[in-house]
Amino acid sequence: MTMKTILTVEDSNSMRQMIGYILRSAGYNVVEAEDGSKGLAQAQSGKFDLVVTDQNMPNMDGLSLIKALRQMPDYKSTPVIMLTTEASDTMKQRGREAGATGWMVKPFDPNRLLEICQKLLG
């Protein structure tokens, strides 16, 4: 089986390192980007099996990144998980409309994140 590659988009260095550590420990190949626009550039230059993104980031936020990804033929149906401190129903609804696959509220359970990745990556 080929190793699945996950793109992690997160502006907090601590949080990005933590998410990267969790996913790499589970055997995934992880590429990190520090804001939405860098994440989009990564997505344009490679093909990822799944995207985990934060919402509040400089330059381009998570919702804008998801909308941009959904315009790209390669990412029309790629699972995208929003991993954010935003917990309101309004934000979740905006995420659903933007095309997010799932919404995880921080602080997050690493095992839950891995379960979801595993499920979405089939």
Binding site: I22, N56, T85, P107, P110
Partner: peptide, 28 residues
């Protein structure tokens, strides 16, 4: 572990503060 409950809660407690600062117009 780098992803222990302590590390995750601490990073969250700091992130909510920093996010709110940035939302209100502070520059990171």
């Amino acid at each position: 572990s780098p992803a222990s409950a302590s590390a995750r809660y601490g990073a969250y407690a700091m992130e909510v503060l920093i996010n709110q600062l940035l939302k209100m117009g502070a520059k990171r």
